[in-house]
Design a binder for these strands. Structure first.
Lengths: 325, 325
DNA sequence: TGCAAATATACAAACGTTTGCACAAATCGC
DNA sequence: GCGATTTGTGCAAACGTTTGTATATTTGCA
């Protein structure tokens, strides 16, 4: 590979001038610059960013840490972040934690060792606090998104979980459903806590007493959603606000099995606008999370050096599963 | 950040000894090594991999270039590749081309500038040959996957498109469908050419003449699938092998609109086992592509320095849309 | 005891850039 | 036409590692 030293030698000047010329410094003569640029192209020069970064003590890499790359939500976040960062001249180094705390620690250390310009992080479900992040990352800029620890300094991008769940539950109430349960997620995760709070708030505003016996916690996947769905039927529910999409799918399985018609006898609204929700039968009303926009927002927060918390609204998409006639 | 020089100073030895101690060289005394390791931990030392890579002229980063990160197929490839590479001590730098040739060129240049250890590439639809890759990447190891140019040297990981399409079409024939059309993709892409070939082969083996008038090219998204579906009905087809999943969905839209029952009156098999295909009604029979395994295979090919072409079998998953009673 | 071999560490250069400082040449004001 | 300023380039150090070679120390053996 050709280096600036090669170019300098070919032109009978020094590497420093070549460096300045290519960097567009005003301290080099127009004529020299042109000569350098011509020669560089001729010799197929491409800057070694590793050397450049080392010398400048800076990096053009931003690390992104997510639980799982191939989860629809996160791959969309990554896509959004990449598009913004790439525009700004950054590249993204991606690590997945597979929800393991240990892997999260390892990923953060790796990124620190690369001296990345910043880190965009969504925590593993196993992580219980942000202490390890602070310790490992030091003063490397950090933006947390989706799964966030409030006590950890720096920008945070979160969905408006409480408001979203509120809107979803309110919609079920207004549609005329009377006994509305919820498939709650893990209470160790802020997002699920907030969704439960929004659900509760909507009930209380409508004068409906909150009934903990129809709150089904730790239901996240299709199977647990199915089981919770059966319990909800048993408990006399006629609607569910579900804090996820796959658990809602499981609940629908249960309803179909019991011959309960959706939405006439039972209404359901899920969360996270996964692709399939619009395509199943009945199509699932859902709270859209805008993961692509969250990724973009996280990237922008990094670029702007923001330390604010940005709340991305969630959008209620009403489909067949809650459209009572 | 502490450096090996700091550690050396603290111990009254030289950076070279520290470096060797941390690298586990046999040329440093056991006692010294322990002292160095202790001090390193004490001072919170983490190796600067940028400097290390510069000096060693090596890199522990592998670049992955895909059309779109958030496409289910590619995010699964990335997930598979990341899991294998991470195990082997590599990290992945991800670039997306958004199907643009220009972006692909830019991405490859970027990766070259980072002096990555290797590149895993799936081409943008706009790319018409691999010439630019050879020119930009030089001797950087390259593994192509899914979208591949055969004339480009190096390992290739591809789905067994021809065999898969053959199996899918054969299945439709055996189910008793008589006039089987196909939603073909873009003939500029090898994968779609092969799928068409497999479709044709199955017909010919069964003694059914190949009829170009029921081959619907350039149908890839739901809308074009819908339009092609209408044409297929018009043309008297009673089945379709579709080279994608979303176009198959569009064809189903058309069939439903016309009140044609699936699978009794019309059979359909799609390609690429997208999540939704199992969840829609009727569930869509599909050719599964194993993207996670393809990503793993690509990563392994890189690690092993293979230059072979590896063919990942495609799996026919028979669901409701082709299960004729 | 003395010399060769083995062991452990130091020295210094190198990877390819960038950048503060020095210096030479050109330009300007008066 | 002289000193002051501007302009353009060179020199050399630095970023934090790694590594070939040299040197110092220890060990082994006769």
């Amino acid at each position: 590979m050709t280096t600036i030293t090669d170019i300098a030698a070919a032109l009978g000047i020094t590497p420093s001038t070549v460096s300045r010329a290519l960097a567009g410094s005003s301290r080099v003569k127009e004529e020299t610059r042109r000569a350098v640029e011509k020669k560089a192209k001729e010799m197929g020069y491409e800057r070694n960013v590793v050397a450049s970064n080392l010398r400048k003590g800076a990096s053009s890499i931003v690390g992104i840490v997510v639980p799982r790359i191939h989860r629809e939500f996160f791959s969309n976040c990554i896509g959004g972040a990449e598009s913004v960062l790439n525009q700004a001249g950054y590249n993204v180094l991606i690590c997945q934690t597979i929800e393991s705390f240990e892997s999260e620690v390892k990923a953060l250390k790796t990124l620190k060792n690369y001296r990345v310009a910043g880190v965009l992080l969504s925590h593993a479900i196993e992580s219980r606090s942000g202490d390890h992040v602070k310790e490992i990352l030091g003063n490397t800029p950090l933006v947390q998104f989706d799964r966030v620890f409030p006590d950890l300094a720096g920008a945070k991008i979160v969905g408006d979980n409480c408001d979203g769940a509120f809107k979803a539950t309110l919609h079920l109430i207004q549609a005329g459903y009377k006994r509305i349960g919820t498939l709650a997620g893990y209470m160790s995760s802020q997002a699920y806590v907030e969704r439960l709070a929004g659900y509760r708030l909507a009930l209380e505003r409508a004068g409906i007493p909150f009934d903990p016996s129809i709150v089904y916690e730790n239901t996240i996947v299709r199977e647990t959603g199915y089981e919770a769905g059966l319990k909800a039927i048993e408990a006399g529910c006629d609607a569910l606000y579900s804090s996820g999409a796959f658990n809602a799918l499981g609940a629908i399985d249960a309803l179909k099995e019991k011959g309960i018609s959706i939405p006439d006898q039972f209404g359901i609204v899920g969360t996270a606008n996964e692709g399939f929700t619009a395509l199943i039968n009945p199509s699932l009303s859902t709270l859209g999370q805008h993961p692509f926009e969250m990724g973009q927002a996280a990237a922008r927060a990094f670029l702007e050096g923001s330390t604010d918390t940005e709340i991305i609204p969630m959008e209620l998409i009403i489909r067949e599963s809650s459209r009572k006639h």
